[in-house]
Computed example of a mutant assay.
Amino acid sequence: MHFDRKTTAAAIRSGNSWKVIMQSRIIRVLPAEHGWALEFSGLDIKPQRFPTMEAAIAAGWDVARRQNAELHIHRHDGDVHLRGACCDKQQGP
């Protein structure tokens, strides 16, 4: 069975068989009450806070590169401003 670099897998038992559940590794840069936050899906990392969007994005890319994860940057209205995979050659909205 082949797994993508950006996903982790968990197996659960269902009767006499096993099912594989795929979970994406996503790092989200989100506006917070005071500054910006990084939240992590599919990674065992606690949320982090930063004073500026630029600092949050820089830290997010650093983690994304190390964890082979995607980075999603959200605007204040909740829309995704940029969605990129750390190892993709092409990035954009």
Results as ranks from 00 to 15, higher is better:
residue 59 A to C: 01
residue 62 D to E: 11
residue 81 H to C: 11
residue 75 R to M: 14
residue 67 Q to D: 09
residue 59 A to Q: 06
residue 67 Q to W: 06
residue 62 D to G: 12
residue 72 H to C: 10
residue 67 Q to L: 01
residue 77 D to R: 10
residue 61 W to Y: 14
residue 56 A to S: 13
residue 72 H to F: 05
residue 64 A to L: 04
residue 83 R to H: 09
residue 61 W to E: 14
residue 67 Q to G: 01
residue 81 H to E: 15
residue 59 A to R: 02
residue 64 A to M: 05
residue 70 E to G: 12
residue 79 D to W: 07
residue 60 G to W: 00
residue 60 G to R: 00
residue 82 L to K: 10
residue 73 I to H: 08
residue 70 E to H: 12
residue 73 I to N: 03
residue 69 A to L: 05
residue 76 H to R: 11
residue 72 H to G: 06
residue 63 V to A: 02
residue 84 G to D: 03
residue 58 A to W: 04
residue 74 H to Y: 14
residue 78 G to R: 05
residue 77 D to L: 10
residue 73 I to M: 05
residue 77 D to W: 07
residue 76 H to G: 03
residue 73 I to A: 07
residue 62 D to W: 02
residue 65 R to F: 15
residue 84 G to E: 04
residue 85 A to M: 07
residue 85 A to R: 12
residue 77 D to H: 09
residue 58 A to G: 03
residue 72 H to A: 13
residue 68 N to Q: 09
residue 56 A to E: 09
residue 83 R to E: 09
residue 79 D to Y: 10
residue 64 A to Y: 09
residue 60 G to I: 00
residue 80 V to R: 02
residue 75 R to H: 10
residue 65 R to G: 01
residue 73 I to V: 15
residue 65 R to A: 07
residue 66 R to P: 01
residue 69 A to P: 05
residue 78 G to W: 05
residue 74 H to V: 10
residue 64 A to S: 10
residue 82 L to D: 12
residue 74 H to K: 07
residue 68 N to F: 09
residue 59 A to L: 01
residue 80 V to I: 14
residue 70 E to T: 09
residue 66 R to D: 13
residue 79 D to P: 02
residue 76 H to E: 13
residue 56 A to L: 07
residue 79 D to I: 11
residue 77 D to N: 15
residue 75 R to K: 14
residue 67 Q to R: 11
residue 56 A to D: 13
residue 85 A to N: 06
residue 80 V to L: 01
residue 76 H to T: 11
residue 84 G to C: 03
residue 58 A to I: 11
residue 66 R to H: 12
residue 65 R to Q: 05
residue 85 A to T: 05
residue 77 D to A: 10
residue 84 G to P: 03
residue 75 R to I: 08
residue 85 A to F: 06
residue 74 H to N: 08
